[in-house]
Design a binder for these strands. Structure first.
Lengths: 216, 216, 216, 216
DNA sequence: AATGAATGAGGCTTCATTCAT
DNA sequence: CATGAATGAAGCCTCATTCAT
């Protein structure tokens, strides 16, 4: 057994996991390679066996993020109702689970996107995947077919994710002050508040009846 | 005449203005004091006569941001209708005007907030000012008195700003791809899309009639 | 069959051969152990089974160089005339043949000698071997017996090798600009130009008649 | 008075001077920026105020070398006889004077040239300057007009400098074993030994009479 | 008030060498 | 015999900050 057996023997994953912790805590540029190596319990040099540079670690992390998003999309497609499908996205950032997306990291990612072209391309890709996926989800949902109001699916998706991201930014400022559970509730409330904008009464009635999704 | 003579010979303002340019372009931690001094056309040492440290420059910048926000609030209170008042906020980030708030800077600011307690306190303060101001604005508006729907003014404000911030994040990724005018239009569209959620038909009719606010 | 099967499966030789390629291309200190291992098509660790350290590789290389020099001396002693014997030395560096001495490597070797005592001792040894061998060659040649001018054999050898090394240095700067054939011709011309300094007419006449040595 | 007053208040020169000491002692790639800063008695960071990178220091050093060579050329042109003019070049490397050219440094320079294109260009430039200058010197000397033998001035220059460089390489191996005075004598002997190859008796007689040039 | 030379800690990265497999 | 993962020291370079002028 290797000296590191934190659940994943995979070095790459181990490093990315450590990097995520550091990035979420300190931001990309405030995190040193030494920080990551320490968090991962390995030497600095070893990181360079798996990643060409610090930038490559960041990029790999976004790739990872993309996979998480695709995972969310898959789960969402299997949800019994549109509302429940959307709740999946609205609660994804609320688990401090290390492998999960962390609010601070995401905001940092967007900030980094505005300067680092490579990261920008990757983030844009994730965003597009997400937007298309959710637009589709909405377009093909029973709710849409029965009682859609004036907005187009794409517009709904845009609005939903704008609100979601906006709350994320807010969370980052409230930081430790807000518990994961509270954030979760807030996010879901927001989603339900937007609901009547999208669908007329019939769908709304459904929404009010469905129970709040339990954590994970 | 020096390259910097925008009416205020004030060194502090000159430095903050230069810092804003740099921060928006490169981010806080990617910007060196030398970058700022160069952009301001002064020496590095001089910055330290006006600011205790780089962190102090960042903090001062948030303070500045607060003043800008208060300015926006004042202008909003004088707007003839609630919709026009809110449009002021929804279009504030769309002018590349150097003295104006820049999207990338704002996202960076939130990212920084998650780590730097001093910045966090300041940002929270600005956010609270904004939220309270707008909540008030909504609460006392003619529209609210006449045809408010179920949501409370505070909730409306929260939703509005979440959507606003969310679009900001998106803008940062689209970067140069989107013109200021396009962003402006998009923001306003978003605002009007949320409108029916807040107010019933009478107010909506008003919204449809009012002309789109002109630049600045 | 591995890419390395030049008759000697000997690992040591394989490593030294790879090291020579790397050293000639990048210099001692610019070459990493990984470079060598890659060039040799083996793992880094394996090098350490045959050589104690990087320094040991360098030293072994000089030893190798010594063997090459002794080989040259043997061939020179069998040459039909002194001129032809000397031509062997003057053309030794002109074949890009991997197992051959490379100009850049030799210059690097001298540079290294000025600092690394171990290498210095080895290089001095090679130099002494060479000088003695050639001095002898000259002293016992028919030309010398018949028509030597004022210079002593040792002095001739010194002059010859100074000129040879000097041209080597020049070659290194001209680098790719000069073809092997051109360098070869230049070297031989230099040798013949020095000839009249050593021997009077009779020997010179001989020199003019003898054909230019063919490659290798 | 600044804390460093080692004769030259000029920082650039001070750094180059320190670098020369280090390079001569350890070679380019064995010398760390810290070594240079220590030798110069300044901080590492300060070097970067005057030079963009370590490579730039090396390049600047070659530029310096060029200036030294031009200085030598000027002095040579004013020499009373060709022999004395040439002696200037043949003894230039023999003074350990810090501002003077050092053998080990020169050999390293050539070694570096074989890999670093920028350095190569610079060295080639110096070499061309030197060769042209000396060719001219020879072509226009009284000796040449009166009693030149078969060789062309250019060829003489090539031969002279080949021999000179060749001895330099040898010196580097003998290192501390040979005193400056001894090297000096050896170099001059070599020059005089080549003399009869260039000119017939009349000039030779002159050479034998002229006194050996005194140091500097 | 203003400059910019100077410092030195710290960041990213490389690499000789070791060692478990 | 052979591999290549792992280490950690050290190298190059940047940058916030200070201070003499």
């Amino acid at each position: 057994m290797p000296p590191f057996a934190n659940g994943s023997t995979d070095r790459r994953a181990q490093i990315l996991s450590a990097a995520m912790v550091c990035f979420a805590k300190c931001g990309f540029h405030q995190t040193s390679m030494h920080d990551i190596s320490e968090q991962a319990g390995i030497s600095v040099g070893l990181i360079y066996r798996y990643f060409e540079s610090k930038d490559a670690v960041i990029s790999a992390m976004v790739d990872d993020h993309k996979r998480v998003v695709q995972e969310l999309l898959k789960r969402a497609r299997q949800a019994p109702s549109l509302l429940e499908a959307l709740e999946i996205f609205f609660t994804a950032h609320c688990c401090a689970n290390q492998r999960q997306i962390q609010s601070a990291f995401v905001v940092d990612l967007f900030a980094e996107s505005s300067r680092n072209p490579r990261v920008r391309r990757l983030v844009r890709d994730v965003l597009d995947t997400l937007m298309e996926g959710v637009t589709d989800l909405i377009a093909h949902s029973a709710e849409t077919r029965r009682c859609r109001k004036g907005m187009k699916p794409r517009e709904m998706a845009e609005l939903l994710f704008a609100a979601l991201r906006g709350m994320l930014m807010r969370d980052v400022v409230d930081a430790a002050a807000v518990s994961d559970a509270a954030r979760r509730e807030r996010q879901i409330k927001m989603l339900r508040r937007l609901w009547p904008l999208f669908f007329s009464s019939e769908a709304n009635r459904a929404a009010k009846k469905s129970p709040v999704a339990t954590t994970r």
